[in-house]
């Protein structure tokens, strides 16, 4: 009887369906997961490509104070010798994903004595994220991870792991604030012929282009790659390479806007 009253109460208030990830709405949606994805969409853009000789990921880091030491608020994380990820969304949630990815890498290694293949890592990481969508006592992760990896059988791989717990393999993927524009730009690339060195420039250009100058003035560009040049090791792209690519992208952008002005 008491139950009847309660459910009646809930049905009256439509918005009661979006308070927990253990609640479906009448049309089959889980709002809390969508809201978690919203947290990602408010965050700095992250893009990644899997190309000819490697996989490269880039992320836009909004700098919150000029007194910050450059490079702090890391959004790119290495998870094993051959794999790394960049985070879009809540930084602190992202670190938990990175930590979990590291644990998966080392546990796979201790069982099989070989490096974890990219698809296995992506699946396990997605499973981890998914578990946080199933119980009322936790919340979904407010971040998405672009995961880059290399193994001898599958070559270079790029995965996107989302708060919902889905993960797909991509040639080019984008998440965060500027993902729509970034995706459009990615679609123009020829991933089969693109080299990592070129990809660094392309990604820098995408981030520079989608960056909203009006909203966030200062930002850093952080990049991570696993490629032939890095001997298939995961590493942050050297700062001078990133800076150069960013400068070139900014110069190109200025030229464009100059031309626009002329017209």
């Amino acid at each position: 009887m008491c139950r009847g009253v309660l459910s009646c109460f809930c049905l009256l208030d439509h918005s009661q369906y979006d308070l927990s990830s253990t609640t479906f709405s009448p049309d089959g949606r889980v709002f809390q997961i969508e809201y978690a994805q919203k947290a990602v969409e408010n965050s700095g853009t992250a893009v990644g490509v899997s190309c000819k000789d490697g996989v490269v990921m880039a992320v836009e880091k909004v700098v919150v104070s000029k007194m910050l030491v450059p490079g702090t608020m890391r959004r790119a994380h290495l998870v094993d010798h051959h794999s790394g990820l960049v985070i879009s969304g809540l930084i602190s949630d992202g670190r938990q994903l990175a930590t979990r990815a590291r644990d998966e890498c080392s546990s796979y290694k201790s069982v099989y004595d070989s490096a974890i293949p990219g698809h296995v890592l992506a699946e396990r990481l997605a499973n981890f994220a998914h578990v946080y969508t199933l119980y009322a006592y936790v919340r979904p992760f407010g971040c998405a991870a672009l995961l880059g990896a290399h193994d001898d059988t599958n070559g270079y791989q790029l995965y996107l792991v989302e708060p919902s717990g889905v993960s797909y393999r991509y040639f080019g993927a984008a998440v965060g604030k500027g993902k729509q524009a970034a995706k459009t730009a990615l679609e123009k690339l020829d991933f089969k012929s693109l080299t990592c060195r070129e990809a660094v420039k392309e990604l820098a250009k995408i981030i520079v282009d989608v960056h909203d100058e009006a909203k966030d003035k200062l930002y850093e560009l952080e990049m991570c790659w696993v490629c032939e040049e890095s001997k298939n090791m995961s590493q942050l792209v050297p700062q001078d390479v990133v800076d150069e690519a960013r400068k070139a992208a900014e110069a190109a952008q200025d030229d464009d806007s100059d031309m626009d002005d002329d017209e």
């Binding site: 208030d13 979006d18 308070l19 709002f31 809201y35 978690a36 990602v40 408010n42 936790v138 919340r139």
Partner: peptide, 20 residues
């Protein structure tokens, strides 16, 4: 009914993706 129903629980995101 409530001023803000999304701000009392640590595991609840607001529709804007915030954690009040």
């Amino acid at each position: 009914m409530f001023r803000n129903q999304y701000d009392t629980d640590i595991t609840t995101y607001s529709p804007q993706g915030r954690l009040h």
